[in-house]
Amino acid sequence: MVYHEDENGYVNTECDETEETRTEVEQAATFDRARFLKKLGSTVFASLLVPAVFKDQFSAKANDPAETAPEFPILPEPTEDEDILVRMMRDVQRAMKKPVDQRKWSMVIDLRKCIGCHSCTISCASENKLPEGVIYRPVMEEEIGTYPHVSKRFIPRPCMQCEEPPCVDACPVNATWIRKDGIVEIDYKQCIGCRYCITACPYGSRVFDSGFSYMDGLASKGEAYLSPEGAIVYEKAPAYEYGKKMPREDHQSPIGNVRKCHFCLHRIEKGLLPQCTVSCIGRATFFGDANDPESLVTELIGKPNIMVLKEEMGTRPKVYYLV
């Protein structure tokens, strides 16, 4: 694969090689939109609603494939030009049929495709009911060059789900650990909120839930449409992180805890893709099982233009970037 870099080492995305260097997989992303909507759109859309439909069953033991299998969304027959989202859902469902310790959930983010729309940030906040002060996947913006000769680079930053996570060793009470499927979990009921892990994470991935609300300090407008009283209903809605129902009540977890991205474990275990992956309008985020040679992420991770953030820290992230 050939691609051009400018003298700073950044890929010049305006080069005309884009088409010829694309792999089959990536070409799949440039599908015919109308056809996609007709054939597959409903499936993807339905997947967004699944947490609402199944929410009361989410407390079921999450790791057992036998228990989760029947709840997977039914996917159409594979076609040559299917949307990568469907392919990745297939990857996820295949992985879910394997024992948990044989899965290796990984994410690939194609920086050449990221347009900096911040949709993933917001859809993640909405999926996990994130309050003010808590964000799992900000999109960092880097400006290169001096005005007016600038280019911008957008880097979405979820938790890297490191294979050697310094945050885990920092925790004095074993409230956070690396799961068999590679996701670094925090148990909100065990975390004492000392915030040592925040200092230990080299990526700033961990955040503290101080108990803020987006409604703090807003003028009240009675029962008006967008009044704090109305909007607070959204804020108090329970989140289903790690498959556990967590209503937002004063002094109760997750308030007072450290929180972070968990690859939407609660969705994966229902055969769905993480919310950021689904909502990425540039199809720049890929997700799947890196232990599966058939999966899309495995294919992408094998590319020479792959990199991880702060490799020198030795954390061995499972979030990769295509540059």
């Binding site: 913006e141 880097e142 880097i155 080299p202 990526y203 700033g204 503290f208 803020f212």
Partner: peptide, 20 residues
Amino acid sequence: PGLSVPEMEGLLHAYSSRGL
């Protein structure tokens, strides 16, 4: 001072909110 330097360039302006 150990905490006031962003771990990642661009993190500061990625999302603005109290606490961030």
